[in-house]
Design a protein around this nucleic acid. Structure first.
Lengths: 143, 143
DNA sequence: TATTTATGTAATCAGTCCTATTACGGTTTG
DNA sequence: CAAACCGTAATAGGACTGATTACATAAATA
């Protein structure tokens, strides 16, 4: 699978914005930190803005800014904004419905996987962008 | 992303074996229940055998069987046997190491994502193949 | 022993998704 | 009006999935 790296990059972007405290940051500047193309950053920023996490200022001197305080942005919100697919992907072809197992395995399994995904999300919900920013600063102190 | 469906299919396969109570089941028969190609089933079975969850009998009248009791097979073991990639994929290109954020975001983020993945795995570890089989039977009763 | 049935594995192919890149229209500042 | 910047679409290269075919090997059986 070519797994999506969007979530990690989105966190990187938001952390960069948080460290600028309201000053608009150009997509080109962010892209230089992430190590990717400005258009990629703008595309992610577009999704983050739709989710209400950022806002952009057009025109000269413009750029992206946080729309909420870092403390109020949970990692789950960021994850959701990326519209990632389910962690556990169901089979592509329909199982044989005339078979006892084929008819019932996937619903039975889904009950467990949904609980597991919920546990995953709950952990992300418990961490905020502020914590990430704090960790970034702490790492810089230690070095 | 073309997410992997291997885990769900593997559970389907193992549930089919569990319901046969030790009688070897041919890959063709399993494939008919799953709705896929026998070679796909054999490939998954190969991974499951490597993980010690199944064993195969070659030759005429052969097929696959469980190597352990359903009660002793957790969904986490099955998931691990599929060798799925990490749930949260790190960026492909290295962030700019001369930048405070670029240097430190990913390690900081990883601490949280590892905790989230651990929560996901813990839930899978708490469920066994036996439960799935029981649910399958229960569903058939209800219908 | 020859035949039949099955597994194990490799090779290939089409389809899908991801990221990078280019391009261009629209917006705001100066 | 010119410059800087965003928003979005289109395209291309790479990577991974699952389906399929093929074939060597192993075990049961007549």
């Amino acid at each position: 699978m070519a797994a999506s790296t969007r979530f990690c990059v989105a966190v990187h972007i938001l952390a960069s914005l948080a460290l600028q405290r309201g000053k608009p940051v150009a997509s080109e500047e962010i892209a230089a930190s992430v190590g990717t193309n400005p258009a990629v950053v703008r595309r992610l920023l577009s999704d983050l803005a739709s989710a209400g996490l950022t806002q952009s200022q057009l025109g000269k001197g413009g750029g992206a800014m946080l729309a909420k305080a870092p403390k109020k942005i949970s990692l789950l919100e960021i994850y959701r904004a990326m519209d990632e697919p389910a962690i556990v992907a169901p089979p592509r072809s329909m199982p044989n419905q005339t078979c006892l197992v084929g008819r019932n395995v996937q619903p039975a399994l889904r009950r467990v996987t949904e609980a597991a995904e919920a546990a995953f999300f709950a952990t992300l919900a418990g961490a905020s962008l502020k914590q990430i920013v704090k960790d970034i600063k702490a790492d810089s102190m230690a070095a």
